[in-house]
């Protein structure tokens, strides 16, 4: 009997090691990447550079990735997060140019993003199209609609003197010492993290992503929850669209799509390296940090743009390998 207890203790220890590897794998990866870039480029580990990562790259990608995390948690994906950003941005700029107050324009922007989400929801929950195909369709349609609206894809500028003050604040101001975009990203991250863990909506969304048939057999109207999820995704992406517009004071058709692949990447990294393999906001944020730092570091090494993409791809492979090793360690315990 004493023999078996030692055995159990060993297995327990092994399990703890595997679990902590999973839990802290992302942070570990961050530290490693950090160390490498600090060593090979002199400019990486400077306050200005790190600030620029946190202020310029991080907030927008974080917000879009959080939106993506909801879509993935419900068992789908949203390829039209960029479209929601663009529509929000277009509505915003158009109304400001038409002389509407910024608040009204911003609300219209949010509504436009939510509308893109509602269109996806209609396709997915009412008509029954798979999320992948539905949002791919929205992506294509959205691109064409934007070209039609802008005479073949011309940017719409806000007149330099006509940019309202609030606007500058949104893009470049500070809030309690934080740059406004970063502050908004942090607020959204905290709110959604709470939503996943502490609300009924979060619990049901995650359950649908894990086994929709059981949710249905529990008497829960899964399609309604999926629909709500996609509207929420559009809404969160619209916030990103507004911040983007406020930063660059211009609407460029289909510019939101630039975030799509990185948002999927960050969500996937966060999901894979979480202990339960579930989509989660914390993991997504760490994934965004990892991707942002790698992109920034590669930029500083003077490597050509295409090699930066290779860097991101390599990172994703590395995550896959790490999760595989972890799973093996876990099951062998």
């Amino acid at each position: 009997m004493s023999l078996t207890t030692t055995k159990a203790a060993n297995a327990g220890l092994h399990g703890v090691v595997a679990a902590s590897l999973l839990r802290y794998g992302l942070i570990l990866a961050l530290i490693v990447v950090f160390a490498i870039f600090s060593a090979i480029t002199p400019t990486f580990l400077t306050l200005t550079n790190l600030q620029s990562v946190l202020v310029n790259n991080f907030p927008l990608l974080a917000i879009i990735s959080i939106a993506m995390t909801f879509a993935v948690a419900s068992g789908g994906i949203d390829l039209s997060v960029g479209t929601a950003m663009d529509f929000a941005s277009f509505a915003f700029v158009s109304l400001v140019l038409a002389g509407q107050p910024v608040a009204i324009a911003a609300l219209a922007g949010l509504a436009a993003g939510a509308l893109v989400g509602a269109f996806n929801a209609l396709l997915i929950s009412v008509i029954g199209v798979s999320p992948f195909l539905a949002t791919l369709g929205t992506l294509f349609i959205g691109r064409s609609v934007q070209q039609l609206l802008t005479n073949g894809g011309n940017p719409v500028y806000l007149p330099p003197n006509g940019v309202p003050e609030v606007f500058r604040f949104l893009g470049h101001g500070t809030l309690a010492g934080f740059p406004v975009p970063l502050a908004i990203a942090i607020i959204i991250a905290v709110a959604t993290a709470v939503m996943f863990v502490h609300t009924r909506f979060g619990r049901i969304t995650l359950s649908i992503g894990i086994q929709p048939s059981v949710v249905r057999y529990s008497g829960i109207a899964a399609p309604a929850y999926i629909a709500a999820t996609f509207v929420l995704v559009g809404l969160i992406a619209a916030v990103g669209g507004l911040i983007l517009t406020a930063t660059v004071t211009v609407y460029i058709p289909s510019s939101g799509n630039a975030f799509l692949l990185n948002a999927i990447g960050a969500t996937f990294i966060g999901t894979t390296l979480s202990p339960l393999g579930r989509p989660n906001v914390g993991g997504t944020i760490l994934g965004v940090l990892l991707l942002s730092i790698v992109a920034n570091g590669l930029l500083l090494t003077d490597l050509n743009f295409y090699w930066q993409q290779v860097g991101t791809g390599t990172l994703i492979f590395a995550v896959l390998a790490l999760s595989f090793i972890n799973r093996k360690a876990g099951s062998g315990a």
Partner: peptide, 20 residues
């Protein structure tokens, strides 16, 4: 297929139909 989700916890499975 219908009764329980293997990748949800005991708690999450048990309360799923009575979350209200």
């Amino acid at each position: 297929r219908h009764g329980i989700a293997l990748d949800l916890s005991v708690k999450e499975n048990t309360s799923l139909s009575s979350l209200d």
